[in-house]
Structure formats: C-alpha cells, structure tokens
Amino acid sequence: MTEECELFECGHRACGGCGPALAARLILKATGENTIVVASTGCMEVFSTPYPETAWKVPWIHSLFENAAAVASGIEASLKKQERDEHVVCICGDGATFDIGMLCISGAFERGHDITYICYDNEAYMNTGIQRSGATPYDADTTTSPAGKCSTGNPRPKKDLPAILAAHGATYVATASIAYPNDLIKKVQRAVSTHGPNYIQVHAPCATGWGFDGSQTIAVGRLAIETGLWVNYEMMNGEVERVRKVAHRKPVDDYLSVQKRFRHLYRPGRNEDEIAKIQAIADANAKKFGIDLNVVKEE
C-alpha cells in the first residue's frame, strides 16, 4: 500500500504483526475521516489509547466492554437530530461481540440504527490473557479451554454470528480477512454507504494469542481461507451474494500445524479423530458456501 495519510496512526502499542491493528488501519482507510468510531474494552482499545496518547485521527469513544452497540445507537440518534452525516462505526473484539455485548447488539440491530458494527475477530479474549470466547474455534487451546489429559481444547465450534445478525434483519452482513486487504476495504466501504444496521466480521490473526511469528500474520490469515476454515462472503438483506472461491482447498493441517494453539493435536502423534472433525468443519463450510472451484459435480 502506498504511503498516504493514515487515520489510524503508527506508534500504538500492539504486538508486532498484530492482525487487529492492521484491521483498524484498513477499516479507517475505507471509512474515511467523516467517521465516529465506537470501541469496546480489549486489546485494540488498550494498545491505541493509553491516555494522553491516541492513535485515532477520527473521533473515537470507548465506554465499556459490552455496550458499544448501545453507545452507537445513542450517537446515531444524536447525529440524526443534529442533521449530521458522520458514519457511526463500532470496531469491537470478538469477546465484546459474540459474548458479553450480545444484548446491546441485538437491541441495536432490531431497532434498525444506521450503524456499521465491525468485529475484529482474533478468536479469544486476548487483552485478559487468551481466554476462550464464543468465537474461539473448535479445539483451540486457550487459558480457559486448555488442552490436557482429558481435553482437546475448546469443546465448541464457533458461533455463527453473521447468521444471527442477518436474522435480525441486518441490511448488509459480510465476513472479511486482514489477509485480503482490498476485499476488506471494499466491504467496509459498501457497509458505510449502505443504510444499516450492517455487520462485518474480520478475521484478524493474533500472533501472541495463536502462537505464530509476527511476520506470518498475513500467511496465517490466507491459510484460514485456503483451508475453508474461514469463508469470506457477503449477504444483502439476508441472502448470500458473493463468496470467495478457493481453487485447490488445502488440508486443515496446513493451518493448524503453524499455530501453537493447535499444537496439542500433533503431540505426541497426530490426533486423527480430532483433526478429522476439524476437516469436517472446513468441508461443511465449503459445501454450505460452495467455495470449491475444482469440485467434480456428483450426479
């Protein structure tokens, strides 16, 4: 990307190779400066706004861990009353979104506020030390879903939040990944130019929490797509419109084996049963969204 004025400044305190920090930068490139950002408590809030410093060159507000959607509702109502036209954009972690903030999100989406809610999904509570969330994938090792003698890690699959919010009547719902920046930018642009409520879930690999080298963030993000464990798609008024296809879907091992959070699946030997279950998740995704370009149609 060319050097240009960034609305999310460098000099913040994220770990090297932080996927969420990249997400913030790309999101603001797309929204432009006529934007008010509403944040939740979490890594991004902490690494970007240690008083008296801030990385945000757009108006930004943080209140609590779980109320961004409600705060955004109030901002939107206030702007409407003042006939102002800033985009109201929530940028919140998966814990804030999938778990503790669900009440406020459900209310805001049901009421139909013109807001865009973006979840930067690093698949656990990173700020408090890598605890599981409703977005943590099956079998991931976190500090509250530890792998052990009688545990293979997180016992539940990821919650399908895009479907839940589409069912609320969200206008535009999309998934994206920091590994595909142009696609992410286009989706955010589409969201802020569409009357909301809109939801975008951005896959944002976390080097520290997932256990990979900070130079590999994009590569890990790509592998999630290439294995079918993450699918990039768009929905308009509840209908899936566009899906990112995959030419030669890779086995899930390619994604799992490069992250420490899945290391237990390969020690002492490859855990055939568990990896087969994860492969089945990828296969189900592929089938549901029709991502495979090279499938032989069975008749």
Partner: peptide, 27 residues
Amino acid sequence: DAEYICVESEFSALSACLGASAAGSRV
C-alpha cells in the same frame, strides 16, 4: 421534538444516553 430510543434494557438506555450526550445532545 426528541429522538426516543426504545432500548431493550436499562443497561442500553444509559449507554445510549452516554453516546448521544458525547455526540453533543441534551439527553
């Protein structure tokens, strides 16, 4: 002449007030 936000809880009521106030409105 007010925006009346029919929230789903008191938690959201005051959170919405906070947002509206921060955006410059009397709430």
